[in-house]
Amino acid sequence: MAETETTQPKVAVRRKLQAGPLSRGDKWFFRGISAAANFAFVLVGLILTFLLIQAWPVLQAQGFGFIFGSTWKAEDGAKVVMQLGPMLWGSILIAITGIVLATPMAISFAYLIVFLLPKRIAKIATTLIDLLAALPSVVIGLWGLYVFTPVALHWAAILNRSLGWFPLFHVKDPSRPLTDSPFLAGWIVAVMIVPIITSVTREIFSQLDQGLINGALALGGSRFSVLRRVIIPNSAPGILGGILLGLGRAIGETVAILYVLQLSFNINWYSILEPRGGAVASWILARFGEASPAEFKGLMAAGLVLFVITLIVNSLANLIVNRSKANR
């Protein structure tokens, strides 16, 4: 009987292989690491829960009007109407303006640093631009208000004079100074997001296959035509990811915008030189100090909307950046 057993074919059991901790110390290391990682998830979850609890009654009472309407009446006694539309659109308008201004600057910086400047100077330039990202936004806001506004006002006036017929640069009353506009806020935001877009673009540029660039130059390409037809098309997904990362920051920007923008619920769809606009985060900051308990909840709801938007934008950005890295 024993012999028949041995003649049966052996079936190897399939095991799942996993790289685990290599020592007792490793075990604690693994626990520490996963605790830290989980902590980040838990923290985001807790913030989201807190905002949801605070915001839910408001969202329920206001319905879709909270996002699309444009009235904000939260004084005591009267019927409370809280509709965020103009602030929400204002955030987007400013972010787009900022990105349109920042992207060419960032691509130029990245190109200079990777392809033109000598290594030593490129390093210094990189440090300086990264330093710009570390500046507190209050500082940029104050600089924007006192130093930059007069300059940008000049540009705004030129734009309005020469392209005022175009709705984007149209102003109802050109005799008034063009202060407090989404254009100014857009510039401030641009200054703040240039470092992010530059650093992502720089990374993507430096990973480019030098063979492609040499090939293009050997075919008689100029510096500019090679940038336009080879470097940018081959880095486009990465640059787009950098732009979205910048967008995430632009939409959430608060203090700096408050200095240079007049917040108004009279919605401004596209006249970027018009002295009124909106920004969700700045609105929260502006109202926070004097808000009634009811309005406080409304501001929390505004915070929730902002949180969700930035979460989506950032996730999308990371997805795109990672994918374009993986493709190399």
Binding site: D209, L212, N214, L219, G220, V230, N234
Partner: peptide, 16 residues
């Protein structure tokens, strides 16, 4: 560079 063309060691067609 137009009159004197060049082919490289590693094929480098433009991927986009």
């Amino acid at each position: 560079r137009i009159n004197v063309g060049m082919v490289f060691q590693k094929p480098n067609p433009f991927p986009t």
